[in-house]
């Protein structure tokens, strides 16, 4: 197991532990009927998270076997490079949602799909145009069929 994977694995459990502690703390102000369930689960969660951290500490030099939880993921890849690329893609997604908020879904879709294909994946021009047009058609059709009304963006583009 690479150090990066080990760090992620421990980090996630620590985040969950923090979440359990927060829930436990935030639940104490509720009336009984709303307090007992989250309190019990949070306490159980804290114990299990601590147990998991202990297990990770004890087995840190031993390799871990792949199992049912991996959903057929393969082992042969460069973890660091994968993290970097995934981080970039996540940034693209966040940018897209921000764009939806500011200029609205339809323009955001056009800009996002085209820009991502060209800049991130260096797709040739014509395939990028075709995919962008196709996605736009799908989005417009679905919005219409599902009667989706997109909320007003912050900076509406006139005519759209």
């Amino acid at each position: 197991m690479s150090p990066l994977s080990r760090f992620t694995q421990t980090g996630l459990v620590v985040v969950m532990l923090a979440f359990f502690v927060y829930v436990l703390w935030a639940s104490q102000g509720f009336r009984d009927a709303a307090r007992i369930f989250p309190t019990t689960i949070a306490v159980a969660g804290i114990l299990m998270a601590l147990g998991e951290l202990a297990r990770q500490l004890l087995t840190r030099f031993r390799p871990e076997e792949a199992d049912i939880t991996d959903l057929g993921d393969d082992a042969s890849m460069d973890i660091r490079a994968h993290f970097v690329t995934s981080g970039k893609l996540l940034a693209w997604l966040i940018g897209f949602v921000a764009l939806v908020f500011t200029v609205g879904l339809i323009p955001a879709t056009v800009v996002f799909v085209f820009a991502m294909m060209r800049l991130q994946f260096a797709t040739p021009l014509w395939p990028s145009v075709l995919v962008t047009a196709g996605v736009l058609a799908v989005v417009l059709t679905l919005s219409r069929v599902l009667l989706l009304r997109w909320p007003q963006p912050l900076i509406p583009i006139p005519g759209l």
């Binding site: 459990v13 359990f20 009927a33 949070a42 969660g45 299990m48 998991e52 939880t69």
Partner: peptide, 29 residues
Amino acid sequence: SGNRPLKGLVAAMAGLLVGAVGGAPVAPE
């Protein structure tokens, strides 16, 4: 949860608590 049941249990507890967000089912809270 495969070979590491504790991880699965931590995930299940987190799921139970995320499911508790919002109106409580048995109290107006």
